[in-house]
Amino acid sequence: MNLLDRLDSYDYELPEELIAQVPADRRDQSRLLVVNRQTREISHHTFAELPEFLNRSDLLVVNNTRVVPAKLVGIRASTGGKWEGLYLRDEPEGCWRIIGKTRGKLTVDEEIILSPASGEPTKELLKLTLLKKCEGGEWIVRPQSDRSTLESLALFGTMPLPHYMQREAEAKDFERYQTMYAEHPGAVAAPTAGLHFTPKVLDECHQRGVARAGVTLHVGLGTFRPVKVDELAKHQMHFEWCDLPTGTVESIQAAKANGGRIVAVGTTSVRTLESVASQGEFAAWQGETNLFIRPPYEFKIVDALLTNFHLPKSTLLVLVSTFANRELILKAYQEAIDHRYRFFSYGDAMLIL
């Protein structure tokens, strides 16, 4: 098996104390590791310095998805046992697709009862009737409510922080686990590279002649699921819904015509752009993608990448390594560890030029 096809080629040792449990005091106070693919130079900065590395006519492409309060906690009506779950997406006929865990085995027609996430005393409850079990432990359920999905989640759900944060969501997470340009609800995890932006940083980018355009990719359950095969070619990538609007296509074409770079903010923006480009004609598109970017993939649209630090042996680390070079990325990760950078969702950022 080729070295680049092996999952264990994308592994590294991370001290547990470097896993960020809370965000930086200010979004743009995060650190920024800058990696130059041509010179292989690695330098250390703060995120507030990002505009200095961008040029006139460059285009920032951001993922404007909005995280929904998808984490659910309830009890099984039949046993009174605790149940924890995650809303994944809407299904036809007013149903939801969810995943959950509880003691014992769930059965069709069983009910889960949710109480408001605020914990305030109320008579209002939400019942979820289990209709069908799907692959991967997922279920199709019918919520017994006249509310819209977003209204129900706002009342009964909370922010779905990743498991490695080892804490429950707090009030501040409803703001900080959301990009400042979040617009279209549907994600169950944040596109974390965008969490560092502030109005000041974006304004400085604009003053330098750097434009911004949006795509939407609703980050799904696959973000939390580990790769379970040793050979990357055997990994079945998860599907995620994405949207590349006409205006963004036109902005990309204009930037490239003017000699600018397409700077993807986050791996989700990369997957959206490259998914469309891989289909042939680069034009406006909506649909589901399961594109797994791994060697020897050749990038068609993205020229530079802003991203956070990713978990060992993850598809996201494989994507970043494909973009830059595996040895260079592992060297950069080790330097980040040596300099005590903060890792994962609330951690620091890396700019690959």
Rank of each mutant, 00 (worst) to 15 (best):
I252K: 08
Y177M: 10
K200A: 15
A189F: 01
G222A: 08
G209Q: 03
E231F: 07
C242E: 02
E250Q: 14
F224Q: 04
R225Q: 15
T198C: 04
V215S: 08
A233T: 14
K228A: 11
G220C: 06
G186M: 12
L202R: 02
P245Y: 12
H235I: 07
K228L: 13
D203H: 14
M237C: 11
I252W: 08
H196A: 06
F239R: 10
R225H: 11
V210W: 02
V215K: 08
D173M: 10
V215R: 06
V219C: 04
V227C: 03
A213P: 10
H238N: 11
T198S: 12
M237Y: 06
R225G: 01
R225L: 15
K234C: 09
A171L: 08
I252Q: 08
T216R: 10
F224R: 04
H184S: 07
M180E: 00
T246M: 13
R176V: 11
E175P: 00
R176K: 15
A213G: 15
L195S: 12
T248S: 11
L217G: 01
T223H: 02
H238S: 10
G186T: 09
K228M: 10
L244D: 04
E204R: 14
G209W: 04
T223E: 02
T248C: 11
E204V: 02
F197V: 05
K172Q: 13
F239K: 11
V188S: 05
E204P: 00
L244W: 05
T246W: 09
W241P: 00
L244K: 06
A193M: 06
R212M: 14
A233C: 13
K234H: 14
E204F: 00
T246I: 09
P185N: 13
K172S: 10
Q236G: 01
Q207D: 08
G214V: 06
H218C: 03
V201A: 11
P199F: 04
V249N: 04
G186K: 10
A233N: 14
P199K: 03
H184P: 00
D230T: 13
G214A: 15
T248F: 07
A211G: 13
Q253L: 14
Q207A: 12
G186E: 09
R212L: 13
C205T: 03
P185D: 12
D230A: 15
Q178G: 11
M180C: 06
Q236M: 05
D203M: 12
I252V: 15
V201N: 09
M180H: 03
G220V: 01
R208N: 11
Q178F: 07
L202W: 03
H218D: 04
E183S: 14
D203E: 15
A171F: 01
A213N: 11
R212Y: 00
L202N: 01
F197N: 03
T198D: 03
P199N: 03
V215D: 07
G222M: 05
D173T: 09
G194K: 01
T198G: 02
D173I: 08
V249M: 06
